[in-house]
Design a protein around this nucleic acid. Sequence first.
DNA 1: GGGACGCTTCGGCGCGGGACGAAGCGTGCG
DNA 2: CGCACGCTTCGTCCCGCGCCGAAGCGTCCC
Lengths: 228, 228
Amino acid sequence: MHDTDLAAVGALIGDPSRARMLDALMGGRALAAGELATIAGIGASTASEHLARLREGGLVDVVAQGRHRYYRIAGPDVGAALEALSHVAPPRPVRSLRQAGHAQALAFARTCYDHLAGVCGVALHDALLAHDWLTPAYDVTPVGAAGLAGWGVDVAAARAGRRSFARPCLDWTERRPHLAGSLAAGITDGLVRRGWFVRRAVDSRALLLTDAGRAGLAELGADLGSSA
Amino acid sequence: MHDTDLAAVGALIGDPSRARMLDALMGGRALAAGELATIAGIGASTASEHLARLREGGLVDVVAQGRHRYYRIAGPDVGAALEALSHVAPPRPVRSLRQAGHAQALAFARTCYDHLAGVCGVALHDALLAHDWLTPAYDVTPVGAAGLAGWGVDVAAARAGRRSFARPCLDWTERRPHLAGSLAAGITDGLVRRGWFVRRAVDSRALLLTDAGRAGLAELGADLGSSA
DNA sequence: GGGACGCTTCGGCGCGGGACGAAGCGTGCG
DNA sequence: CGCACGCTTCGTCCCGCGCCGAAGCGTCCC
């Protein structure tokens, strides 16, 4: 009757503890089983069972290193699916001041799977187009290639692989597009390595814009609005 | 701690009965509650409860018409999410001859949410690029615009809206790209209206290639392989 | 207006699966 | 070499939820 087992993946993502783990892993980094247990707020044994099921379902990969076992999102397909899902997921009601502060941080700069989103993500997207680093069809111009190389971004590597190269992705806080795709992942990686952003916490997708980053974005003419 | 409630959507999709309903609705047409109950193989009351939850979760829309209530996928975002999910979902083991036949039909021509996929989808994708109806960046050429207009496809309408216009989407049976996006939806709609394809059954995403469609694809030089 | 039909709401049953703690296994540090 | 640590496996409990049948509400047909 059917081709793929939608319900199986859905059920995997549908458990609150597993969803929290996956959300944490969407930060892009591999996390140890113990960290994930803490993040999900459950015991180590329970977390282990969940992770085993996620692994069996092909949603996460595991790499053993010493006495730790690091889990990460299995691949771009999985990341894309979770990203798409989070776009239709209902916004979670804010319950505390601490959460409100966190929500504000997320709205300003965060990772969307593995690329930059939020106010900063949209501003970068707009600036890249305004400076003709990207064409309206989201291809890299010669000027853009030079600029990106200066940021340490490997455009050729981003072009390899079957993942979509660059495309707009509607930002759920800004309601305007930010840049997605392998190029966006490369750029985000480059900017973090250049110290424009630092990751706030292990279990969070929030990014902190550094002074260097603020200067760099200003030089690009990126508009961070009043929150700058 | 989190922005959206991933687990809520996941749990909605994670139930086998609901997943079957959603899968059926991915055919693109609105279906009545009773039809969906039959498709899912459950009682009317149970189906009604499931549909209420899907509606509450924003995954489906309902439109009352006489004493029927027709349900459909709530929007392109939801369709995209389900599509992305089905790409990571494990292939379901084939259990019967009837299912094997159905799987073969799906592999030849089916809808992927609302656009053409399978052997025919990949062939169309390749032909559009080979004839320069589409650029490698997936924009429509003047030649393509004329040709598509001849098929009754409204390219301007496809360009409107915030949904992605045209992009490759990896076909899970062919392991090569077919065309996705609003343009692909418009083309598929046009081809069905021109009688190149007919929808096989209510609960199926399978399409039947008609003689007219076979002739049309042949004229395009589309390669359907040995299964033609 | 009456009856058939389509759908939803409600009450109750039963099972799947998520939780924990204890125990087992492998790795690394002192 | 032995203990501490990280992770997994196993046994057990129990809550949540998917299922159905009965009843209620609205719509269409005769």
